[in-house]
Structures are given as C-alpha cells and as structure tokens.
Design a protein around this nucleic acid. Sequence first.
DNA 1: TATTGTTATACTCTATAACTATA
DNA 2: TATAGTTATAGAGTATAACAATA
Lengths: 142, 142
Amino acid sequence: MSQQSRDDQDALIDALAQTAFVVTAVLGRIGLEHDLSLTQLRMLGVLRDRRLRMSGLASFLGLEKSTLSGLVDRACARGLVERSADPDDRRAVIVALSARGAELAAEVFAEVSEQLLPLLAALGPAEQSRLRALLAGLLASP
Amino acid sequence: MSQQSRDDQDALIDALAQTAFVVTAVLGRIGLEHDLSLTQLRMLGVLRDRRLRMSGLASFLGLEKSTLSGLVDRACARGLVERSADPDDRRAVIVALSARGAELAAEVFAEVSEQLLPLLAALGPAEQSRLRALLAGLLASP
DNA sequence: TATTGTTATACTCTATAACTATA
DNA sequence: TATAGTTATAGAGTATAACAATA
C-alpha cells in the first residue's frame, strides 16, 4: 500500500522548492542587513572551517576564478578576508577569514539559527528528529 | 523525553540550509540550460497560474518595480511574456506568459521534477509522505 | 495628491577571453 | 606547456531616485 501517486510526488517536489525559497529568503534577508550578498554569505560560511586557495574556493562555490577575484577583492576591501601567499607554490593565493570576518560570520550564522528556529517550532521534538533524519537521507544520496 | 539539544537543532538547521542549496542548485542548472536565471525561472513559475500587474508581480517576487521593468523587458524581448493594458486602470500593465513562455515553463518544470525525483528515491514511499507532511507543517507556520 | 510604471544611474555578480607569473 | 590568478569587458540582476501618465 501507500503507493506514491504522481500528484503526491509533485506535491513533495513543490514543498521542497518552496522550502528552498523560504530558507534562501531568510539567508538573503539576514545577509542584506549586514550588506552581504548570498554569495558573500556562502563564502564566509565556507571559510569558517577552512583556509583555501583561490581555485579551491572557486570550485567550492561553483564559480569561475575570475568571478572569485572580484568577490575576494570586495571582501578584502571590507576587511572580512585576507589574501596570503602559499609558501609551497608562489603562483597560489590563500584566502582566509580575518578576525573581523570570523566575528561577523559567527554573528550572522547565529542570527540564521535564531530566525529559522521559530519555523522549526511548528514541529514537535520527535518530528524535528524525523525531519533531520529524512533530510540527511536526501542529502546523502549524491 | 526526546529532548532537542542545541546541537540537534543546529544539525537540523544545517540540513535545511544544505537542502535549500541543493534544490536551488538544481533549479539554477536547469535554468541555465534554457538561458533562464533563477529569477526568470521564478517569474515563469508564478505566471504559470496567474496574470498579474507589474506591481503585483513585483511584490510576489519580492522585487522593486524598477527591477521588474528590466526583468520583464528581457523576457518580453525573448517572447516569453507579454505586456497588455489593464482595461480598468490605464496606468496599469498586465503581464502574462506568451504561448511560447507557457510551453517553456511546462518543459522546464517537468525537468525539475525529473531531476529531483531521483533524490527522493533515497526515501521509501512512507518516508516521502512523512517528509511532505513535515515540510507542509514548516511552510504553514508563519 | 497618490499610485503605476519606466528611465537614469550605480553597484554586485557572473562569465569569457586575454594576460602575467610561476611550475 | 600547463596552471594559478588577475584584469578587461560585457551582460544580468538589483536598488534608489527622478520622472510621466493616470487616478
């Protein structure tokens, strides 16, 4: 039993797309309050746990290296990230959060949690666990 | 029991954000193949079931009216949407999909389903139902 | 006067192509 | 020759401010 009709699947896909838009909108709004585009926000998020070369960061974000040059330029000018030389390869440039960038990233991502939490409050604790497990399954699928 | 620890909630928020990025990436990639930005894609999606005035469409998409003017200009130039007069208010402009726009929208959104479905295959039928219900609860919350 | 939409302007994000420096 | 980054250029998306036409 419990067959999935075409309509059921469509409804799920719709729900997923809408959820994506809602979450993205929250990220965008919080970013805006700190003068950060979604891309800058993602960059800060990626750099929270890592130091990367320009090329590595570009492929992480799915951007061309020329795009990243501009992105890093602007973040650098604002003192959020820093470029440094790679001692192993003099062509390469390492990008890392500055102290101020790390501080801002922590602040922003705390706000994100804060603003998504009320959304989650619509679900009970058991349901939250269940949702977490389901999304984990989804994300693991490659 | 079944208390939610801080870490559990953070994990759920992380999963939500990642899901949003994955879904958005799929939408973006399919859009790209048809020379449609995410915003153009959303506009087509909104106009699938509605005819709207410029102002209505702008607020639907969360954009300034001036932004929408350019967006509609470009979509118009490609023959995807059409402007027409509002008989009730000569200041207003009605935007609607053209025949070709409707065709493209149907095609693109069929592709979206096609590409998200395999992701969903990671879950069994009962889990899909459960996820749908949970997301619906989430989206209903505000 | 207030509202609807467009235009002018400016900035960010994005890619492609050409270039420099290093490997 | 090939790779890492930057620069030049161009186009889309975005907002603010000024404007025209209509209500």
